[in-house]
């Protein structure tokens, strides 16, 4: 059976971290399971966690009022769900829902923020990795905004 530390070590987001830092991170982690349709978090509520998907998928959703609920992105195995725990005011910006049976490693954001404050090298290493993930997702979102499959002027 794989320990939490094994799971964290194998995750691409944590690749290259020292054993000491991996152990610190594992100290803030726990396994969780979400049934299909279960809510991981809701917009506006305190963002005190983030998740690493082990199996399954998570849909990020926004309530667009008259247009109903819109899925803006789905996240899959080895993706990280949630950045809002890192930045004030520590509130979720979107809803997140399990698209199917989903297993995650859940991280206590306050616990990890505390460890980053105490060990700035850990904070820097984590911030580098989250920034890379943020940039990749930002670039994908920009492409999504282009609506490339919309009608082009053709004959």
């Amino acid at each position: 059976m794989r320990t939490l530390e094994d799971l964290i070590t194998a995750a691409p987001i944590f690749a290259g971290l020292s054993q000491e830092h991996l152990s610190l991170i594992a100290g803030c982690a726990a396994n969780e399971h979400f049934a299909p349709g279960a809510q991981l978090f809701r917009e506006g509520t305190p963002a005190d966690q983030f998740f690493l998907i082990r199996e399954g998928a998570v849909a990020l959703e926004v309530d667009a009022l008259a247009r109903g609920t819109i899925v803006i992105e789905t996240l899959h195995r080895n993706d990280v769900v949630g950045w809002s725990w890192l930045f004030e005011p520590y509130r979720w910006q979107f809803d997140a829902r399990a698209s199917g049976p989903t297993r995650v490693v859940a991280f206590d954001g306050a616990c990890l923020r505390g460890k980053c404050e105490a060990d700035h090298e850990l904070g820097y290493q984590l911030m580098r990795r989250f920034a890379a993930s943020l940039i990749e997702r930002l670039q994908a979102t920009r492409l999504q905004l282009l609506d490339v499959y919309g009608h082009a002027p053709t004959p």
Binding site: A57, I70, V71, T74, H76, Q144, D147, Y149
Partner: peptide, 14 residues
Amino acid sequence: VDSAGPEWLGTVGV
């Protein structure tokens, strides 16, 4: 797909 409602259980993204 680029965009979907909650009834879509597949992938959303580029």
